[in-house]
Every structure is written in C-alpha cells, then in structure tokens.
Write a protein that binds this DNA or RNA. Structure first.
Lengths: 153, 153
DNA sequence: AACTCAATGTCAGGACTTTGACATATCCGA
DNA sequence: TCGGATATGTCAAAGTCCTGACATTGAGTT
C-alpha cells in the first residue's frame, strides 16, 4: 500500500512527502535511529553523546551552552548532564566561580567512552555521506546552514 | 562565549558542528520550532499537522501507515489520532471491515483546519527554501532522499 | 484444515522533553 | 549607586514518545 504514484515528477512538489521539510525530517529520523541503536549498546543516549562530543571540543561549556548547542531546553540539558555525571563521564564544580554557570568537563572515563563510540558513529555518518557525490557535500552543508539560519532569524 | 573560532575552514570538518548530522539536526530543529509556534496558535501539534496533511493526500491511511509516514511508533501515532478524533478533525470506523486496520479520513472540519494552517506553514518552508539558490533545490531534495535511503537499508 | 508468519491495534510502564515558574548572579545604563 | 535587563540553574507538573508485551486478524504454506 501507499506506493509512490509518481506520475508528475516535476515542479511544485504537490506531494507533501517531497517537501524539503519532510525530507529533512525523514533523513534526521533515519540518522537518529541508526545512532540511537549503536549508542544504546554503549549505554549512551543521543543527547548524551552529543554533549560528550561538544565537551571534547569545548571544555568548560555550561549547561545552558550545551542545551543551546544540542537544541533542547536547559531543563532537558540538566537531566542529560546529571546522567553523565552519575555515570562518571563528566565533572562539574559544586560551586560556580563566576556567575551561576558551572563549567562541565570530561573525565578520563568520559573521554574514553567518547573515543569508544566515535568510530561507530562516524561510520554511520560516513554511510550517509557516501550516498551522495563527494563534490556536492560542501554545497549541501552550506545550504543546510543557510536554511537553518533563515529560520533562526 | 563560544564563537566560531574558524581558523581552518576547510576539508575534513573536525568540528562536530560542521558535520552533516549536526547541520541536519540544527535545520530540523529550527523548522520544527517555527512550525510548532505557528501551529500552536491553531491548536495543533506538529505530528497532528503532519497527519492531517498525509490524510488529505491519502485518505484511508491506517494508524500504522501514518505512524510509519510520520516516523513515530504505532503507539504514538495512536495518541495523535485519538487527539484528532476528539477534536473532530478525523473519523475512523468503529470496526475494521478487512483486517484490524481502521482507515482514517478527514472530516469537513479537519479539512477546513488543514486549509487554515497550510498558508502559514508553507510560508515557513518558503522562507527556508528562499535561503538557497532556486536551481539547487532539486539536487538538495535528491541528496536528502539518497542519504535517508542509505540509512534505512 | 491446521499451522506458521507477518501486520495491526492496544495496554502498561517508563524514559525523555517541554512549559511555566522562581531564585540567584552579572552586566549596563540612568 | 541603583534598578532594569539579561542569563543561569533548578523545581514542579504535564505532555510526548518509546520499549516491551499481548491479543486479534489475514495471508501463505503444508
């Protein structure tokens, strides 16, 4: 049931499943699903992995920083951080030295866990990227960036 | 805080925020946020809107069909359908005539509600699409489709 | 006809995320 | 100096979604 019915393949894309938004959702869902499956075997959720990756790149990010960067609310970010902290993968000073922000950092174990999953996660992304001509990747990235920026005001 | 630090803008994209997956997530989050904001004013959630749009295109889709098409589980799809039914926007036969699948259809009110929000939603998508050169749109859609297909086996 | 198998709808429980609100801390302009 | 604006962390409640499980239905096979 529900085959494509592609009779008029052309211009204005009357079929919702051919809209940019739908393709975006579909691709993102596929990626998140594949990542979640792999990460679960390592005891990590997708937001937790994203947080580890960001902290490796920018040590000392605060909860609010991380929440913005992972596109969730501060409250959700706090839950993620709490989980990582209980798992011993990150540390946060009990008291903030400047504002209220408490900078988070990877522990050695956190660094090791990240390293352990990166290969698998990158393989997934590579499988996705390999599906398109290599010379189009840079343009694709730029276009995604432009589209996102257009909606973020 | 956290400015770009773009010293080496080129090849392998060592910065996670320049990975395809991250851009995909960011763009999708921006779109979902913008859509959610508009749809809430009309008393609809994003999955509810997606369901209405699909039912307008393919009347008679079952809950399982819709769940697959909106990338959620059957259980979540059921909740969405229940909400739409209580709002009087769709109808489902109390008993299935063939298997267990109960085909859903838009009511006149559901059709009207969909028509009422489409302009606003399409405007958002248009704002996003206008951010990139028009001649690249078809390629972008094709690439997204390829990437999604590659991860869906 | 009997069996196996896949698909569908649904229930229960839990995990994750959001909305709303509040207190605290810094910065900046009047 | 002082007050408003901004930013952060956190709590509470609700909503949303998922995992796991089960019963029902139809198709295909033997």
């Amino acid at each position: 049931m529900l085959q494509n019915e592609s009779a008029e393949p052309s211009r204005p894309a009357k079929d919702v499943t051919q809209h940019v938004g739908y393709l975006l959702k579909r691709t993102q869902a596929a990626l998140r699903g594949a990542m979640g499956k792999v990460l679960r075997e390592h005891g990590l959720t997708v937001p937790q992995y994203a947080t580890l990756e960001l902290l490796a790149l920018h040590p000392g990010m605060s909860n609010a920083d991380l929440a913005r960067a992972t596109f969730v609310t501060r409250q959700s970010g706090n839950v993620v951080l709490r989980g990582l902290q209980e798992a011993g993968l990150i540390t946060r000073p009990a008291t903030a030295d400047h504002g209220r922000a408490r900078p988070a950092r990877l522990t050695e174990e956190g660094d090791a866990r990240l390293a352990a999953v990166q290969a698998a996660v990158y393989a997934i992304e590579q499988r996705m990227v390999d599906a398109i001509p290599a010379r189009r990747l840079a343009v694709l990235l730029a276009d995604l960036d432009r589209m996102a920026a257009a909606l973020e005001e």
